[in-house]
Nucleic acid binder design. Sequence first.
DNA 1: CGAGCACTTGATCGCTTTCAATAGCTGTGG
DNA 2: CCACAGCTATTGAAAGCGATCAAGTGCTCG
Lengths: 246, 246
Amino acid sequence: MKLRHKYSQDCSDCPIRYRAICSHCEVSELERLESMKFYRVYERGQTIMWTGDKMEFVGSVVSGIATLSQTMEDGRRQMVGLLLPSDFVGRPGRENIGFDVVATTDLVLCCFWKKPFEDMMAETPHILQRLLEMSLDELDAAREWMLVLGRKTAREKIASLMLVLAQRKSALTLTTDARDIAFELPLTREAMADYLGLTLETVSRQISSLRKDSVIFMNSKRSITVPDMGRLFEEAGNRCETEFMN
Amino acid sequence: MKLRHKYSQDCSDCPIRYRAICSHCEVSELERLESMKFYRVYERGQTIMWTGDKMEFVGSVVSGIATLSQTMEDGRRQMVGLLLPSDFVGRPGRENIGFDVVATTDLVLCCFWKKPFEDMMAETPHILQRLLEMSLDELDAAREWMLVLGRKTAREKIASLMLVLAQRKSALTLTTDARDIAFELPLTREAMADYLGLTLETVSRQISSLRKDSVIFMNSKRSITVPDMGRLFEEAGNRCETEFMN
DNA sequence: CGAGCACTTGATCGCTTTCAATAGCTGTGG
DNA sequence: CCACAGCTATTGAAAGCGATCAAGTGCTCG
């Protein structure tokens, strides 16, 4: 539970420079942000914020993956968001955080103290605009996930998750039409269960089933290869193939 | 499928003046909005926009209730949002709408053509700020609903819906500690099922069950009275009673 | 080598769905 | 006025899917 090492980074060659909240900023704005920022490093498994905590800082995921989740008294848990590099953590204009934020891999966060950040936001429409764009994208994603949670079968849920991860991978590598898409699962079976509203046993069974039916191949328990994205798309119960090209 | 009558309203005494996107606007900004706006009236059951439609206008719900929903090829449907007076319809910065928008009651919409609205938004931080606030609130609501969809039992789902409607009602009437809260269900059993990720039969059964156990009382099939909000809160499986006072 | 963790697989249980019948209400037209 | 269609809602019986309980495998790390 301690910082393993100092991390430092120039904004000018930051890996998330063109996707994070700063992406629309001009040089002068970026300089101001640069003077305000500080980095925090978290280890895999570490909780970054607990539900109800006073939010003292906000920030962007630079590298690694975090999850947003909610827990009921009796322990039932639901993941409500997956935070990937460039995603924003925290909510300007609200005192307390509404969800647990947990690092599922080692993680680097580019942080700003909340009050100075809010002040800057009020004066910098570029940041405001970008944050609105990002929030609306997250809202769309949350709503799409509601269909998965509310109406899809266990098999379709697993396929949907695989599809999201595969699309994310192919978007990064810009492979236009590579038939085989391979990626690593960044989540344990239990975390997948929490994301999909299932038990970890059901997750395991459905992954085995998709493997048996050659929808996916596995080199190891965490390494997936998709031979036919169209097939995966159908298994996910999605409307048609139009989405699959973006 | 036609407008029943013209609707007209001065912004200055608009019922949603202090909650909609215009709520932070100064007089001059409001005048500009007033000159741009036009009203549309929809009848109960009418679809306002279909998934994938080109979004030609955006707007605010003035009165009535609309739903946002998503449908799979085989007909499975999931409601992903409930639009109440002051809620915003449409997404600046995106060409097409991602969900069906349907009026579940007669409805009045205060509309703006999309392009002029986007232009104004770029020059008016007050609107940008308000839209960000509203989007973040919706994001929180969507994420809380993900817990309902993913982890709650049918009985807890019904109780959660009743709770949301009861809280909304008590927030409007500002009854500080009235023990009995009464409200009308604005949704059919089928619409509730689509919201909760259940079948309409299960909805009906669970409502009967809550009635049998005196968690709710019913004057008619659509009229609910809650004798004890704390009890309803427990039935919804919520963490504790803190939320129930806001 | 043994403890701990992530994962897999089997057997059974129970909640929700599915299929089906029926009741109540509203509006229409003979 | 009543018959009837169409819609919303309720309730019953049976089936099925995912949860629960339980055992066991394989891997990593001390």
